[in-house]
Design a binder for these strands. Structure first.
Lengths: 350, 350
DNA sequence: CTGAAAGCGCTTACAG
DNA sequence: CTGAAAGCGCTTACAG
């Protein structure tokens, strides 16, 4: 592979001059520029990004640590992150934690070792010392979707409370009274917040959320299956189940089907996170949709602000309920409930 | 961030000694080792991978350029690639081409500039000069899923011909005679091969595959929608449609539903690539399943063989038909047809 | 406008 | 077993 020296030799100039034309430095003669460009072309020279990074102490790379690539929500998030990053001149390296704190740590360490310019993370747990230390040490960082309380890092996420209230109103209107939730890990904010939002919304209708109706999942399909089986085995099974993410909803569908039962006739189902397939499932699944693409883009903008020395703001966007048929039919509520959408709340952080 | 110099100073040794203990070089005294380790620990030192890469000319990184991360098939492929790579001591950087040759080129260039040790690619087209040159120049490369003929690069893929024959037998048995295909781009091998396999299998039953029944898609949902609408507008619409990937099948479901029609009553549907949601769609979708995880792992092993100087072999695995209900009901063929599975064909390449 | 030189943080023969 | 030194491929003050 040709190096800058080869180009310099071929063009009859010093490596400094080659570097200058490559970096569009103004003080280079037209003549030198043409000779360098010709040499670059004929040698097929490409600057070594590794050497450049070592010298400039910038990699123009963002790290993205997500909890599970196989989750369509995170896949879409990752895609929008990469798009916005590319538009701003950054590449992104994705680390898939697979909902495992040890793997999350592996990726954070790997990314830090590579000296990425900034880190976008959707934490799988309360945060390892490694991640917390990095944040404290000033590594530009932004939490997206999930976050860790008490850490001074901007957070870009969706507030699902209003949508959860809409969902509970919907379930209540359809006559459901014994409602259960398949929760995510309590160590994650989305794991606990969704339970709390659900509990609060139920309380407004005088409905309880007893412990037996709170199933502990881990955001992956198998746990949705297991928890749902547990619900169905109860002396008094719930008549509606709210899965805190789309994969656990998939698991719930598996479990219901395996018993020969039907949604929504035997049990209603709703999910947090909407995905294209929910339109075509049997029945179509009522879900809470996040503005996923916008979250990804906003997170990148915040992180790049941090990296480039501008103040970065936290961003909270609203989620909305999309009613389909998995909670039962009720003509009058069909379609999208026009949630009085929260205006994007912006609070300045660092 | 502490550097190796800081560690050396703290431990009272030279940077050479620090480097040796970090790299498990045998000739270091026990005493020096303990002092270095203590210094590393107290400083929270982490070696700079950028500097190490510049020096050793290895990044321990694999590039993976895939056509579309949002496609669950590729998401699963990416996941298995990362897993196997991690097991072998490599990281992977994913580039999402989004079925766009220009984006594919962007990522190949970016990855090459970063001096990745090897490249795994599922080409979106016939290959740009950049990619072809890299292959010729000896950059370790392996094609996975899709490939480019005439380039001396190992190929890891699934052979779907037997499964397509099973599918055609299934369609024929259910009485379908006017069968159509939503093809992928002809510039991709999977785009053309699946059409050819389908055509050949139909020919065995004396069924034609007229041009009007070959819809040109691009492996993404919108094209599946568009092509299916075209089919439905035909004076004589097909009675069965085979989508060459799962996203175009999603688009087809959208189009059929939008017309108020039903699968399989009004039109049968089958897809290449099986995904977990197909079990729960209305109706469950008959699909051809690839051994996706195994493909990803085999591709990584082949690439790492190339990188580490061992001969790399091409690998072809069999795909299999999974019958569900989207082509019609026929009790006797329900379940998985036990395809006389092709033994994995291995031919040596480089 | 141009080049010689230092230096980014490592690794690794080479001497001792 | 250990250290001084060279060098990986760049960028960038500093002089001229």
């Amino acid at each position: 592979m040709a190096s800058i020296k080869d180009v310099a030799a071929a063009a009859g100039v010093s490596v400094a001059t080659v570097s200058r034309v490559l970096n569009a430095h103004p003080s280079v003669s037209a003549d030198a520029r043409t000779r360098v460009l010709a040499a670059v072309d004929s040698l097929g020279y490409r600057p070594n990004a590794v050497a450049r990074s070592l010298r400039t102490d910038q990699t123009h790379t963002l790290g993205l640590v997500i909890s599970d690539v196989l989750n369509p929500y995170f896949t879409e998030l990752a895609r929008s992150v990469e798009e916005e990053a590319r538009a701003l001149g950054y590449s992104v390296i994705i680390g898939n934690a697979d909902e495992r704190p040890d793997l999350q740590d592996h990726h954070v360490r790997n990314l830090l070792d590579r000296r990425i310019d900034g880190l976008l993370v959707s934490p799988t747990d309360g945060g390892s010392p490694l991640m917390l230390d990095a944040a404290r040490a000033g590594t530009p960082m932004v939490f997206v979707d999930r976050w860790i309380p008490g850490v001074d890092v901007p957070v870009v996420r969706a507030d699902g409370r209003a949508a959860v209230q809409d969902l509970v109103a919907h379930l209540h209107a359809l006559g459901h009274r014994r409602v259960a939730i398949i929760a995510g890990p309590a160590a994650t904010t989305t794991g606990s917040e969704r339970v709390e939002a659900f509990r609060a919304a139920l309380a407004a209708y005088g409905l309880p959320l007893p412990d037996v109706y709170i199933g502990q999942g881990d955001f992956q399909a198998a746990s949705g299956r297991r928890v749902t089986e547990g619900f169905l085995d109860l002396p008094e099974p719930p008549d509606a189940v709210f899965a805190a993410d789309n994969l656990m909803a998939l698991g719930a569908l598996d479990a219901v089907r395996a018993r020969g039962l039907r949604v929504p006739d035997d049990i209603a189902l709703a999910a947090f996170d909407d995905i294209p397939w929910f339109v075509h499932t049997d029945p179509p699944v009522t879900a809470i949709a996040q503005p996923t693409g916008e979250l990804g883009r906003a997170a990148v903008r915040a992180l790049v602000d941090r990296i480039e020395g501008r103040p970065a703001a936290s961003v909270t966007l609203a989620a909305r309920l999309v009613v389909r048929r998995s909670c039962g039919e009720a003509p009058e509520t069909a379609g999208i409930i026009p949630t009085p959408s929260l205006p994007p709340v912006q609070r300045s952080t660092t």
